[in-house]
Simulated assay, not measured.
Amino acid sequence: MLADEIQDPEALTPGEVRAEYEAALASVVEAAGVDAVAEATGVEDTRLEELLDGGSPEFTVEEAAAVLAVSDDRPDAEALLLEVRDNLMLQMSSAVMDVDALASGLDGDLDPKEIQQKIEGRQPMTLAEYARIYRHIASENPY
């Protein structure tokens, strides 16, 4: 889900991409129940309830992967994270984009070193940051 291709990145804002991710998270929480997801993931039940109520609580990509992994039809959280990170790097390569170009395309609020660390998993990345980064890479990718 998090690594699925964005079909028409130019038609979506980063906020809309994030909303799609949040809708997928909410469907897992709704199906499994707040208590079960909180227990399995360590994510606070208040944030899960806020998500179900249509809010937009902050999640890291790691937390989002853990929530998605609660679903029986998804791989475990670690496999999802590896897929996300690999996909980001492959998409950057396909778009012939390095972290300097990516930082420039994101209007400079994240520096290249931060972006590199977030993509590699050495620094936490919020779901909002991921949506912005992934959408921008997709919009620059000719394929």
Rank of each mutant, 00 (worst) to 15 (best):
E44F: 10
E78L: 13
T60V: 07
E78Q: 12
P142L: 13
A26H: 02
A103S: 11
L106T: 09
S93I: 10
M92S: 09
E62L: 07
E120M: 12
L48W: 03
D86M: 12
E10N: 08
D4N: 10
E83K: 11
A26D: 02
S94F: 00
A138H: 14
E114Y: 04
H136T: 14
D76E: 13
E10K: 14
E114H: 07
A38R: 06
P75D: 12
A69Y: 00
D100Q: 13
S71K: 09
L102V: 10
M92C: 05
Q116T: 14
D98Q: 09
T60Q: 06
L80W: 01
G33L: 08
R132M: 03
E20R: 15
E22Q: 12
G121T: 06
P57N: 06
A31Y: 03
D72L: 11
T13S: 10
A38D: 02
E22A: 12
G15P: 02
N141I: 09
A103M: 00
D98T: 13
R47M: 10
L90D: 15
I133C: 00
A19C: 04
L51S: 09
T46R: 14
D72G: 15
R135L: 04
P14E: 01
E5L: 14
L12E: 06
K118R: 15
L102T: 11
T60M: 01
F59H: 01
E49N: 13
L88K: 05
P112D: 04
L102Y: 04
V43I: 12
I119M: 04
H136D: 05
Q7P: 04
S27K: 14
T60D: 00
E120I: 07
S56I: 06
A11E: 03
I119R: 06
V84N: 00
E39H: 08
Q116W: 06
E30T: 12
D4C: 08
E44T: 10
L12D: 05
L48A: 05
Q117P: 03
K118E: 09
S93T: 14
V61L: 02
Y130H: 11
P14A: 10
L90C: 06
M89L: 15
Y134M: 05
A32R: 15
L80E: 07
Q7I: 15
A31M: 05
A23K: 15
L110W: 12
L81C: 02
L106F: 04
D109K: 13
V29K: 03
V84A: 00
L12T: 07
V67N: 00
E114D: 11
D107Y: 13
H136Y: 15
D8E: 12
A19P: 03
A38L: 08
A19N: 09
L25Y: 03
L12F: 09
M89C: 05
M92G: 04
L68I: 11
A3F: 07
L82R: 15
Q123E: 14
L68T: 02
I137N: 00
E63N: 02
R122W: 05
A23F: 04
D53W: 01
G54D: 01
P124Y: 04
R85W: 03
S139N: 10
E140Y: 04
A65G: 02
V43K: 04
